[in-house]
């Protein structure tokens, strides 16, 4: 099987590490070779962060290069636009429509681009959703990551039960129901 590539992008602190951990656990139970590449340290302080998830029969490189991603799962709209050129032909962007201003925009040194959903949609296939509102419906704004994983899950053959098991293995039990609800809201969107 050809190696499949998923990029998880967002702003440091949005929970991309949990999303990649969960995905990794699920893929391991399916017997794939897997590489998941994360960013720690300085980039986590509100900077642009990217996690690469690759799986297949044999995976060599831990990273995904331009033009290689089958899916870009983006927790923030500007970050979806930043990484669009990493998408492979036929790839899809699944993005949160939430916007978080980066410091150059906050201090007026740059503009947050307008109509980004439309611009991304003119370039590649995009699914844009208000994952923040769905996460709040589930019980916490922090569950944006799980809402988006729910939407991503529609594009893979794994059963809902398999995803739920991976959630159980990855989140503390007191947040389990919240995260399951967030996943379902994202999956059914």
């Amino acid at each position: 099987m050809k190696t499949r590539n998923i990029m998880i992008v967002g702003v440091g602190g949005q929970g991309s590490l949990l999303a990649s951990k969960l995905l990794g656990r699920l893929l391991l139970t399916k017997g794939y070779d897997i590489k998941v590449s994360e960013v720690h340290g300085m980039s986590q302080r509100g900077g642009s962060v990217v996690t690469y998830v690759r799986f297949g029969d044999k995976v060599y490189s831990p990273i995904i290069d331009k033009g290689e991603a089958d899916y870009i799962l983006s927790f923030e709209l500007l970050e979806a636009a930043r990484w669009t050129e990493y998408l492979a032909p036929g790839g899809k962007v699944i993005t949160n429509t939430q916007t978080i201003n980066p410091m150059p925009v906050i201090i007026g040194a740059a503009q947050y681009p307008e109509n980004l959903v439309q611009k991304i949609g003119e370039t590649v296939e995009v699914i844009a959703m208000d994952a923040l509102t769905l996460a709040e419906q589930a019980g916490s704004s922090k569950a944006v990551n799980i809402v988006l994983l729910g939407q991503l899950s529609r594009h893979f053959d794994f059963t809902e039960e398999e995803w739920m098991t991976a959630i159980e293995q990855s989140v503390p039990s007191k947040f389990l129901e919240l995260n399951k609800k967030a996943f379902t809201l994202g999956r059914n969107y």
Partner: peptide
Amino acid sequence: GKKAEENIPARPPV
């Protein structure tokens, strides 16, 4: 790959 937008502000850590 294709860019969706040319002027994407940087997001440095803060």
